[in-house]
Design a protein around this nucleic acid. Sequence first.
DNA 1: TTGCCTAGAAAACGATCGTTCTCTAGTCTA
DNA 2: TAGACTAGAGAACGATCGTTTTCTAGGCAA
Lengths: 197, 197
Amino acid sequence: MTNVTTDARSMSDDAARELVVATADRLYNLRGIQSVGMDALRDESGVSLKRLYKLFPSKEVIVEEVLRSRHERWTRSVSEAVAAASTPQEGLLAIFDFLGVWFGENDFRGCGFINSFGELGGTVESLAGIVRDHKADFQAYVAQLVEQAGGPAWLGPQLAILAEGAQTTAAIAGTPQAADDARRAAQILMDAAGIKG
Amino acid sequence: MTNVTTDARSMSDDAARELVVATADRLYNLRGIQSVGMDALRDESGVSLKRLYKLFPSKEVIVEEVLRSRHERWTRSVSEAVAAASTPQEGLLAIFDFLGVWFGENDFRGCGFINSFGELGGTVESLAGIVRDHKADFQAYVAQLVEQAGGPAWLGPQLAILAEGAQTTAAIAGTPQAADDARRAAQILMDAAGIKG
DNA sequence: TTGCCTAGAAAACGATCGTTCTCTAGTCTA
DNA sequence: TAGACTAGAGAACGATCGTTTTCTAGGCAA
C-alpha cells in the first residue's frame, strides 16, 4: 500500500504529469479516447481529480500531450532502428522490421494517430493538425532516407504508404503478417528504384 | 414543407429504414459515431425518435447496418471499376483509379471501417468483427484478381496494403495524391511479379 | 496548542447520451 | 359523429461525461 514507486501523492508535479500522460496513453490506446473518462484516468493513475486539473487545464490538453509523447516515442524508436542499420537502404528496411516487432506486442491496437483521427479528426481540429504533422514528419523522414540512399523522389511516398497500410492491416487483422508483406514490397520497390536492399 | 421525396412521415418502414441508414452513414462519416446522437439522427433524417426505435432496436444496430451498407457500396463500386477494365491486370490498377476519384470527393474523410475500428474496435467486439470481415473480403478479392492475372500469391497482400495505406494517407493529408503514389507502386510490384500493367 | 494552508475523497453540477414515456392531434371505422 | 387507434413532438429518465466544489484530515509555523 505504501509502494513508493507507484504512489502518486508523493510525486513532484513533473513526475505526476508524466505518470498521467503514460496512463492516459495506455488507456486511450486500449479503449479509445472518448471511452476513457477522467474518473478512469484517476483510478488508474492514482492522481486525484483535483490534482489532475491542477496539472492540466482540460482533458483535451491531456490528449494533446499523449499524442506529443507518442510522436516522440515513435520518432525515437524508428530512428534507433534505422541507426542500427549500416546503410540507408538497410535503414529503410529496418523500419518494416521495427513495425513487425511492434505489431507483435500484446497491447498493439494500431497506430494511435490513425485511431485518434478516425475518432475525433472530424470534430476536434487541433487533434487533426497534430496527426497531420506527425504523418508529414514521418513522410519527410522516409524521403530523407531515400535521398541518402540515392533513390528517386517518388520512392519515399510509396514506402510511407506501405508503412501506413501495414499498420492498419495488422491492427484490424490482429496479426503482424502485414509487416513482412510490406517489407517484401518495399524491397521490390527499392530494387526497381535502383537502390539495393 | 410538403416535399414528398424527403418527408419521412409518409414513407414505408423499408424506405424509412433506408433513409435512416443513409443519414447515419453521412453523419457518422462526417463527425464519427460517438459524436452523433440519436437526436441529431432524428433532426437530419426527419424520422421521429419513436419511429427510430420501432425500426431499429438500438443505436448499435444502426451502426451495424451502416457498416453493412458501406460494405455493399464499397464492394459494388470496386467491382464495377474493375469490370470496366479489359484485363485482370488493368482491373487491379483500376482499383487505385477508383481510390483517386473517391479521395477527391468533398466528403471524403477516410475509410469508414478504419475510422470505426479506431473509435470503437477496442470496446465493441461486434463492430471489430464486421470491420475484420470487410477487410478480409477485400484482401480475398484482390488475391482473386491477382490469381486471374497469373500473378504470384505474395502480390495480393502487397497490393491490399498499398490500398489501405493510400486511404489513411489521403484522409489525414487531405489530398488525393496518395492514390497516384500507390498506383505507381502497384504497377512496379505487378511488373516485378511478371504481370504487365 | 492554535490557526492556517494544502490536498485528497467524494459529492455535486450542468450537459449530453441512449432510451422510454406522456400527451396530444389526427385518422380510420362504424 | 363518436370512439379507438396511431404516431409524432417533446419531456423525462437514468447513466455518464468533463469539470468544479465541499468537506475534512493532516502538516507546519508561531
